[in-house]
């Protein structure tokens, strides 16, 4: 049987329910579209949330997971506040993005993905985000020339922050960490393990079905 006729099965919906944070809410969407209309970045995405939910229900696994759409979410929570069915849409969007990333299906060269990666790596080092380092990394993400240009542009802001002691230049050198970095790493590892087991089980279930 071809892919086309496997539409409108629960297969992908179940996969999402098993692997995506708050994925069990997807089925509750009634296609009113208030989330899509409420999203401040709406005009920039290919598929707004309500359409993503419909695509999940239409079993469009590839299209959903390779989509850049959920990467646009800025967590403004407008959609959650307005959803008449109380779907935690923001969480589902992040969950989907994360799952796509895990599956290696997320599109490359997504600025938000790049940012997320840097943010995460930065965080892992010392258990807290080093804003100065993260900021500089982002400035120079696309090469030296652009980095310098951006830095110059932001000069005034930087100086202002220095003056008001909102920025400590010493942080650029190493920065301070959180209290129990070991404990944090252990916790994160445990979480990763749990997720992986969960995903493996779901995969098993899916494979046994088909």
């Amino acid at each position: 049987m071809s892919q086309a006729v496997e539409k409108y099965r629960n297969t992908f919906l179940r996969e999402v329910e098993a692997n995506v944070e708050e994925g069990q809410w997807v089925k509750m969407c009634m296609q009113c579209g208030v989330c899509s209309g409420s999203c401040p970045l709406g005009p920039h995405w290919e598929h707004p949330p309500q359409e993503i939910f419909m695509m999940i229900r239409a079993n469009k696994r590839e299209e959903v997971l390779t989509s850049s759409s959920m990467w646009f979410c800025t967590s403004c929570y407008n959609c959650i506040a307005r959803c008449p069915r109380e779907l935690p849409i923001t969480h589902i969007m992040h969950g989907l993005a994360h799952y796509a990333q895990r599956q290696g299906l997320a599109p490359k060269e997504l600025p938000t993905a790049k940012f997320a990666k840097r943010f995460w790596d930065n965080l892992l080092k010392k258990g807290r985000v080093n804003e100065l380092q993260l900021g500089l990394q982002l400035y120079f993400m696309n090469g030296l020339a652009e980095g310098i240009k951006t830095s110059l542009k932001m000069q005034k802001v930087g100086l202002g922050m220095l003056k008001t002691k909102r920025m400590d230049p010493m942080e650029a050198l190493g920065g301070h960490g959180c209290k129990d970095i070991k404990g944090l790493k252990a916790a994160l590892n445990k979480a990763k393990q749990i997720e992986e087991t969960k995903a493996a089980k779901a995969l098993e279930r899916l494979q046994s079905k088909s």
Binding site: V34, S36, E51
Partner: peptide
Amino acid sequence: LNGVNTEGYQR
């Protein structure tokens, strides 16, 4: 009025 026509996604 701001929103999305869900029939075929029109903003």
